[in-house]
Design a protein around this nucleic acid. Structure first.
Lengths: 276, 276
DNA sequence: CGGTATTTTGAACTATCTCAACTGGGGTGG
DNA sequence: CCACCCCAGTTGAGATAGTTCAAAATACCG
């Protein structure tokens, strides 16, 4: 078993169709290190509702989601839990550096995870400082996603939030090119994620149906009849964001918007930052 | 100017009382690199409401907040902006690795920032891979804070949210040991941050006063009369979280809570993860 | 089929928003 | 110096989205 072989025999079967193979941490490491990690990995199936990692724990392993959905949730003092975020295949459960997160990670659907011992992974990180940068990028991206999720709630009513959520789901194109979305989450989880009661969720879904935007085939299967109107209702801001990304060449403090009463006051003296 | 000198003459005045001196990125680097960065830094004052960094820009500099508060905000299509997060002295504005963030950073109060050219800082990061780890830790902490902020909204009514916000502020002990809080944010910003209108904010503050929990000395100065009741109203979960952190020795999938219909079904066959 | 869990519907209730008017302090200009 | 203005903050009253509680309907599974 020479260390130059990319993957060992056990790994070959495991990693061939791994959704994290391209995005996850496994590919940051040199083959020899990767082998070690793979050797320390196990696949494990979790049933819907099962707790994968309870809050406040520092687990001996980190997990990468292979299939299914994982919900980050917190249980308040009344026993009702709030879904904060949904994690998809390829994303990580648990911090590889051993930080304890005070939220519980539960299987939102039946799910399989690739569990890796944290110790060898930590070692691999230390030997490959580059991997820190890679992991950092991912962390920043997740934070950005969180900000967006937060944004998708602000100033939106329940109908708009559902419309938004549906339009973020990647639809499957059916036989006659009808776009359909499968709701993998239970009504309870989805309602909690979208900050509303199951009742309003149900009512609003049917309101969307009444307005001819979607069709509820079965409770877990929707057809999107009017994608444009759906996005309008969701107040999708793609356009605005793209615009923002295109404006270039900004410098610090070059523009002041939203001036309250200071507009006329104050010295415009020191503007040390323009150019370079 | 030998590279072994910890700080150059310009820096000495600047960095002596820097709030980021202990927590910020400056202290991750070796003195010689730090000098270079300090040489490329400028202090700059921003007035309340001034835009420090508009959304979607990749600035040539990153800033560290020295004093004042910075709001991360986004302007929706109707022109009203939503405050997503408040940054405090010591925290960073702009990504040192040049990621463009689609949110605008505005001065919530008059504020001073230490602006550093991104290029030399990036260089310092690359030469000191350890600094990646340090920065990663900070990123994770910020993400955790975000999750908490999100949590502080869920399932809470406006009164509870204000109570929560007040109890997160660090109070100053007055002369006769009366705890007082200075509200640096405008009502508009605070209301936006807490997801309510200025009217409800005002009403709820006065309701807290009527209930004898706080006293509104001036619109921007509160006295906390009953800290215990305030925390109760805020539904502070410190206790629960501490509990969670104390439970140790957890392993993956050892416990299943919240079992829906799968409780009786399914094989309990493969539990490959216990011990080690 | 029969029992159970989930989803949907209904109707009363309530927190929050909206719109509009009022207040008071600080700065401005006569 | 005083009157005025302007704006942030406060208060009031009506409108409404969303909750709550309760019950019916549907889907799921042995």
């Amino acid at each position: 078993m020479s260390p130059s072989l990319p993957v060992g025999p056990t790994a070959q079967t495991s990693c061939a169709d791994c959704p994290a193979a391209l995005s996850g941490p496994c590919q940051w490491f040199a083959p020899c290190l990767r082998d070690k990690i793979v050797a320390a990995s196990i696949h494990r199936r979790f049933r819907q509702g099962e707790t994968i990692l309870p809050g406040g724990q520092v687990p001996a392993r980190v997990g990468i989601i292979l299939s299914g959905l994982v919900k980050i949730c917190t249980i308040d003092e009344h026993g009702n839990d709030h879904v904060l975020q949904i994690l998809h295949p390829g994303e990580m459960v648990g911090d590889p550096f051993g930080a304890s997160v005070p939220f519980s990670f539960d299987a939102a659907t039946d799910a399989t995870l690739c569990l890796t011992q944290r110790a060898p992974m930590k070692e691999a990180f230390d030997r490959h400082p580059d991997s820190y940068a890679a992991h950092l990028r991912i962390a920043m991206r997740q934070q950005l996603e969180l900000h967006f999720a937060q944004l998708s709630m602000r100033g939106r009513n329940s109908l708009q939030r559902i419309a938004y959520w549906i339009s973020t789901q990647t639809p499957e194109a059916g036989p006659d090119r009808v776009l359909s979305v499968r709701i993998l989450l239970s009504r309870r989880d989805l309602a909690s994620l979208l900050e509303m009661t199951v009742e309003t969720l149900s009512r609003n879904l049917h309101q969307l149906e009444d307005r001819g935007v979607i069709r509820i085939v079965t409770p877990e299967r929707l057809e999107i009849l009017d994608a444009t109107r759906l996005r309008l209702m969701a107040r999708f801001q793609d356009a605005r964001l793209k615009d923002a990304l295109q404006r270039q060449g900004w410098e610090w403090g070059a523009r002041a918007v939203n001036l309250p009463r200071f507009s006329a006051r104050g010295t415009r003296a020191d503007q040390p930052t323009l150019r370079q």
